[in-house]
Structure formats: C-alpha cells, structure tokens
Design a protein around this nucleic acid. Structure first.
Length: 431
RNA sequence: GGGGAGGUGGCUGAGUGGCCGAAAGCACCCGCCUGCUAAGCGGGUAGGGGGUGUAAAGCUCCCUCGAGGGUUCGAAUCCCUCCCUUCCCGCCA
C-alpha cells in the first residue's frame, strides 16, 4: 500500500499513476475520510488527556462528584474513538485498493502491445522441418495427458507421465541447484496454504480474491504463487539492516482460478489451475532494490541461457504491469511449434508497497528507527511453459526430444525423450 | 478432537487494579577507567499514531504487554470470545 501521508502530500501523482495503470484509485474519498478520522481522533485524544489527569486526581481525593464527571468523559471519549475507529477501518480498506506508483523508466502504455523489448538472447532455432506443438509431441509420446486430467479434475489440468514427469522434476532440481549454489539464494519449502493476512501482505487481497482458490470453511487460501508465503516469511518483523538483502528460492505448486481468462490459451500445457514454479524472492533496502531487481532478473535469465532457449525480456508498460508492481519484466521463451513467445517468468520490484501491507521493516543500523523494506520477486522459472519451450525447441523430425545438456545428469543420463517404450498403451478404442 | 499450561521490549524474564510502556539480566550504543584485551564504573536503547513546526529537529498528547470486546473513574493485571505456542491423551502419512 501507499502511505497515507504520501497520498496526502501527492494526491495528483497517485491519481495520475493509477490512471496510467488503468486502475481506479479512491484518492478523493481517502482524503475526505482522512480529515474526518483525524478530527474525531483529535477530539477523543483531548478528552482522554483530561480524563487521564483527573483520574489520577481522583485516586487521591476520592471525590464522588469528580467520579461522575469522569464517567461521562469516558463515555464521550469512547464514542468519539469508536467513530474514529470505524472511519479509519473504512480508510484502511480503501488504502489497500490504491495501486502502486511506478518507476520513471516504465514505458507508458495501455496493453501488452505497448510493452517494450528490453533485450533478446539467442535466435529462433531453424529446425529444418515443420515444428510441432508441445501438446502434439507430448500426447504422441505419452508424456502429457490432458484428456485423462479433464476426467480426473477438469479443464486446465494436466498429467505429466513417465519421462514428462521426470523432466519436470529434473528442471526443478536443476533450477534450485543453480540458484542456491551459484546465485546465493537460500532454499525454502513453504506452506501451500496461507491465511488471509498473508494474501493481503502480497496484495493478492482484497482486490484479487477471485483469482485464488479459497478453502471452504477456513481462513486458508491455496497459494497463487510461492511469492505469497515466502514474502510473508518476515511479516511483522524488524530485520537487521546488515542482513539484507535476504534471498530466497522456493519450489512450490501454484494454484489459480484463471477467472477472466476463459477461452485464452486453452490448448496445451500453458494456462493451468495448478502449475509448478521455482520462485525467487528478495527482501532488501530502498537503496539497493532496483539493482537487486535487475540482478534477480538476470538470475532467472541465466536458467534460460543454460537451457539454450531463445528468449526476450519485455519491459512491461504501465497498463500491463499490474496493481502492485513498481517495475516489471516478463521473460518470454520462444516456442517454435506454437510460433510465439511464452511468458516463463515475471520479475517485479514493489518498493515498500508489499512491505507496508505485510509490515516488514528493517533497522538500517543499530539504534536507528526502522524503515519499510523493499520486496522483489520473480519466477526462476515457471515449469510448464519452460517444458513447452524445451520440447518444441529440442524436438526432432521423428517426434522425439533431445534433452538439453545441463539436464542430462538430472534425468539419470537420459539423452532422448521418447526413445524408450511408451509409459502405457492407450486403452482399446481410445478413452 | 479432549484436557492442562502459557503468549510482556532485539532476546530471557518479573510484574494480579493507580507508584507500570513495564523490574532484572543478556545483547547493543556512548562516555569514563585502563600497557592491550578482559573486567569494572556511569549513562542510553520498544513500536505506532495525532497536534504543532516549510521541513528536519524539538515540544506535546494518545494508543500498544497475542487479537477483539467487556467491567472500572482507572486494566499487562479481572471477565468473555478468538488466534497462536507448548505439554499429556486420542487419531494419523
């Protein structure tokens, strides 16, 4: 969230940022409630001040007339405070609905078409034959199964089978190893269910409740990303400044309702209700956050480079970057079969927007007052689309798939997917 | 799920109605002392918010002892609800 004081002092800036992000921002209502809240609070505090003084006097004198007056003062103070509290709750709720401002380097624009290519790596591969899609290849090889997944769970679910499942596991191990051993991240295995306060902390609530799955009958949500539990790891804490930046990497499944995405990317292993992701999270200071953000993005890119996948880095425009982000890059890997780029990572810096919600602070030095931390996160990487890009990039004309060199040790030396016997036969007559 | 104990500052922990935003210890900071180090001596160190300052500082007030209510002139302390931790029993991968 933005600080109330910041909105008081920069209402026009906040309004303009929201407008460029295409988000509503109840700035006027906030300023109005702020004035009302402070008025009642001030009244209540003045009464309390007097009451506290007289109450001490009463302790000595035991004057019954004074007691009666104090009783009335307590009543008045309580009712004023209760009005102030109600207004403040309304105010706080509105504050949670004001979008973050953005960095000056963010391109101004409305849709994905206005995003800017920041850089590219590698080239589109020349396969020498007509590229097939990952779902075509995957089903033919028996390593992906969408029909059975639909029967077991529904649309937007998938089975990975045999070498497909093993490829996913290998990728997770590979990514975790690179990030922990070479990029200096600490591995975290987080809870997959989190409470509402945590969802508010990362700004998934209150605005985006319909994007996540809620557990019936309890205050728990299936995480839409490991960003939620890992960022909230330090909720309500004051960290030592000299411990920053904290760098975490977490593998976890992510769950999304994909509400509003009906009909989009319905085909293939692309937009699922459940998917795996290796997530990078940093908690750092204001001075270092933009630099750490760039480094985190490079850490995610490093995985794509080692896998030998052509990709580009998109600098997201104001209208496409999201409610909470201060700046955001998407990493898009090339998928030759689909003949388009797939978003395999989204890297964002939030400044203190999340930290204020989650109350994550740090002390710059001993004795100094605490300051809100800055949070950063990015996928490093999301599994399904990385698998898609690998399958489509490394496919052979016979429909089998070469395993990228760096993954071979993680697949027990397997160099070619599809060379062995298929995992199982389709039942007679199909499904 | 049932029963017991408990949640106090960066940490340990005392505090059962006003002298308590809080003893003591640890840690840390400043100063003194001191060949060096250690020890010793003195002082300091919670968070949030309002008002007043152009701002910083300062001054001042209010709130906060897990959270929310209640009793009371007055609550860390008494009562209720909830959350969490821990122990015993039950169940269980």
């Amino acid at each position: 969230m933005l600080a109330l004081e910041f909105i008081r002092k920069n209402p026009d800036l906040v309004r303009r940022a929201a407008e460029l992000k295409g988000e509503p921002a109840p700035v006027d209502e906030i300023l109005r409630l702020d004035a009302v809240w402070r008025e009642h609070l001030h009244t209540a505090e003045k009464i309390k001040e007097e009451q506290n003084k007289l109450s001490k006097e009463f302790a000595k004198t035991r004057d019954e007339a004074l007691k009666e007056r104090l009783r009335q003062m307590a009543d008045t103070a309580k009712s004023e405070l209760s009005v102030a509290g109600a207004v403040k709750r309304e105010l706080d709720d509105l504050l949670l609905r004001v979008p973050n401002v953005f960095h000056e380097s963010v391109p101004v624009g409305e849709t994905g078409a206005d995003n800017v290519v920041a850089r590219e790596w590698g080239d589109k591969p020349d396969l020498g034959f007509a590229a097939r899609t990952h779902f075509d290849l995957g089903e033919a090889l028996g390593v992906m199964d969408f029909e059975r997944a639909a029967r077991v769970s529904g649309a937007r679910f998938a089975f990975l089978i045999g070498e497909g499942a093993r490829l996913e596991r290998a990728l997770v191990q590979f990514m975790l190893d690179v990030h922990t051993r070479e990029h200096g991240y600490t591995e975290v295995w987080p809870p997959i269910l989190v409470n509402s306060a945590s969802m508010v902390g990362t700004a998934n609530l209150p605005k985006f409740a319909d994007a996540a799955f809620k557990v019936e009958g309890s205050d728990l949500w299936l995480i839409p990303t490991a960003e939620v539990p890992v960022t909230n790891l330090h909720r309500e804490e004051i960290l030592d400044g000299d411990r920053l930046p904290l760098k975490y990497v977490a593998y976890a499944p992510s769950f999304r309702t994909e509400a509003g995405a009906a009909g989009k990317d319905t085909r293939g292993f692309i937009r699922l209700h459940q998917f795996s992701k290796v997530e990078l999270v940093k908690v750092t200071s204001a001075e270092t956050s933009l630099d750490e953000f760039e480094k985190l993005t490079r850490d995610a890119e490093d995985i794509l480079q080692r896998l030998g996948l052509h990709y580009r880095v998109m600098s997201m425009c104001t209208g496409d970057m999201g409610f909470a982000q201060y700046k955001k890059y998407d990493l898009e890997a090339w998928a030759p079969g689909l003949d388009r780029y797939l978003e395999v990572s989204s890297c964002s810096v939030f400044n203190d927007f999340q930290a204020m919600r989650a109350n994550i602070r740090y002390r710059p030095e001993r004795g100094a007052p605490p300051r809100f931390a800055h949070t950063i996160n990015g996928s490093g990487l999301a599994l399904p689309r990385t698998i898609d890009a690998i399958m489509e990039t490394y496919q052979r004309s016979d429909g089998m798939i070469n395993v990228p060199d760096v993954l071979r040790p993680y697949l027990g030396g397997v160099e070619l997917i599809g060379a062995g016997p298929p995992p199982f036969r389709a039942p007679p007559g199909g499904l």
